[in-house]
Design a protein around this nucleic acid. Structure first.
Lengths: 343, 343
DNA sequence: TTGAAAGCGCTAACAC
DNA sequence: GTGTTAGCGCTTTCAA
């Protein structure tokens, strides 16, 4: 493998000049630059990043701690982060946390620190007892204000709350007396946030939320929740914390003889790729993963490269409610419902 | 930040001995080892990987080139790779290729090489004109025998072909005269492989495959394909190259008044999380992502660490056909079908 | 079983 | 504009 001295020799310059060219520094004449580039090309020279990192104290890489799941939300966010990291000119290192792992986020952060990353992204954290983690590089927490000890912790909301509120309000606006909620596992911040926003939307209209059914994001858990909800005639509107659970809920309702949306409206969360093609097409909200990743990484890179300047303000992301055929006004008459017929 | 000399000083040993302990080398007395470990702990010492990589010429990291998509298949495979890499004691670096990017896989490989990875995984490659890529480290190609120039190229099939064959045969076994195929984009190796296996299954029974409809993995493209297939009364069985497209096909068939599975059977591919809960529950095949990733990485790590020994044989993965309610025998009488009634 | 010395290939600071 | 001189913090000889 050729080294920079070899390039220097071939180009007839000093090794430092090669370094200057490769780092796009100023004060190099165009002619020398050309010569160096040509020599590097000719030799098939490739910069050694380990040496560069050792000498400079920076690795030009960012580490991301993510959940080891192919669930649509987390996977989409990870893809967004990868793109944003690459666009920012950094390399990406990934460590997943395993659910139930005692070392959890702290262990993952530690392993990234050992690898020498310049910054860390924590994607959609879940509570593992959350002993506060210590990091000596800037940290971006996506989707939760995690207690964190680092020189600069920046957080960027993913807008879950506004989206959950919009979904709930959509159902209320259709005329439903209340909205039931099938929540995600409450160890996930994302699940708690959606639950809170749902409750907030009800409270704002003077309503008290009915008991919550908690699922685990899976369609199977949505199905189980749906069976319970189906037996209650008062249920006319359900907001599920993700689309998979919503689809499970719908299946359970249909099997119980309750039509969707005629008898019961169901709204989901995420807008997964098949949402528009299931029966009935699912009303849901779309998370702006790419925008969130881009905005969050801007903050992180700023914290890395301008450690002493203030952070630019975080941008807001638009709320995208996608209304399809799984939501409708509540049934006008409610056969077999004691309360309704007696009125 | 403390360095290994600091640990050495505190433990009263040489810096080299600290290095020995941290690398779990032999020839260190238990007592010294304890002392060093304690000193490291006390100082909050963290090994500097850049320095280690520079000195040793190895980074203990593996790079993966993957598609920047949250599609269930690629995302699941990536998660499997992450786990397998971590289990093998390596760090993971990720670079996505952007569809349509001219530099494509070659550019991604180049950027990983610059980062100094010890090995590279190419996950589910697609053809971008595929100028053969050159790498000076072992390369694992998952899901395609890509032309590749590297000291050791190992490939591990993901078993797509057997699974696609199983799905097709399942439909034939139910009594269908033939099986139509909604293929994935043919630039993807995975799509070509499934197409080939479907055709092979038909050929094995002396059948000639009907014209193929090509989609782009999306439910929308499946829906478009479904509309075309719905107008043809001869269609009684459809095998779609992924579940999303299968769901789109089903929706189009139902809208056209053709019942699934009574009139037309539809099988998918992947077993996405909602497959069991859509209407009707989808018959599909399940890909063994985790097993494939584990087996593939074993090969890669072997090629990295024992460059001169032969590779162990690749393991076969079990075929998992998941039969649900979207497939059934063909209709016995076919009202309105000219050919059938005239017989 | 332990230690001393010599780099790995680059960037940083300063000189010219 | 360009070159010189020191390291960055480890691992690798080799010697004891």
């Amino acid at each position: 493998m050729p080294r920079s001295v070899d390039v220097a020799r071939l180009a007839g310059v000093s090794q430092k000049t090669v370094s200057r060219v490769l780092n796009n520094e100023q004060y190099v004449s165009t002619e020398v630059r050309q010569r160096v580039l040509a020599a590097a090309e000719q030799l098939g020279y490739r910069l050694n990043n380990a040496a560069r990192a050792l000498a400079s104290g920076r690795s030009r890489s960012i580490g991301v701690v993510s959940l080891g799941t192919a669930l649509y939300g987390p996977a989409s966010l990870l893809m967004g982060i990868e793109r944003a990291v690459r666009d920012a000119g950094y390399a990406l290192r990934v460590v997943n946390t395993v659910e139930g792992d005692p070392s959890g986020i702290a262990g993952a952060v530690e392993s990234l620190l050992e690898q020498g990353v310049d910054g860390i992204v924590i994607s959609e954290p879940i509570d593992e007892g959350a002993e506060p983690v210590r990091a000596d590089v800037p940290v971006l927490v996506l989707g939760a204000p995690l207690p964190f000890s680092a020189p600069r912790v920046v957080t960027a909301g993913v807008g879950s709350d506004e989206l959950a509120r919009a979904a709930t309000e959509h159902l209320l606006d259709l005329g439903h007396a209340t909205v039931h909620h099938v929540a995600g596992p409450q160890r996930w911040y994302a699940a708690r946030e959606r639950l809170g926003a749902w409750r907030g939307a009800l409270t704002a209209r003077g309503l008290v939320g009915p008991p919550v059914v908690e699922g685990d994001w899976s369609a199977a858990s949505g199905y189980a929740a749906g069976r319970r909800l189906a037996s209650d005639d008062d249920v006319t509107a359900v907001f599920a914390a993700n689309d998979d659970m919503a689809i499970g809920v719908i299946r359970a309702l249909m099997e119980a003889g309750r039509r969707v949306p005629d008898d019961v409206s169901v709204a989901g969360f995420d807008d997964i790729p098949v949402a528009a093609y299931v029966t009935p097409p699912l009303t849901t909200v779309r998370q702006p993963f790419d925008a969130v990743a881009t905005a969050g990484l801007q903050l992180l890179v700023h914290a890395i490269e301008q450690p002493h300047e203030d952070l630019p303000p975080a941008a807001d992301h638009p709320v995208e409610l996608v209304v399809r055929a799984s939501t409708a006004p509540p049934p006008r008459t409610t056969p077999g419902r004691g309360r309704a017929t007696s009125r």
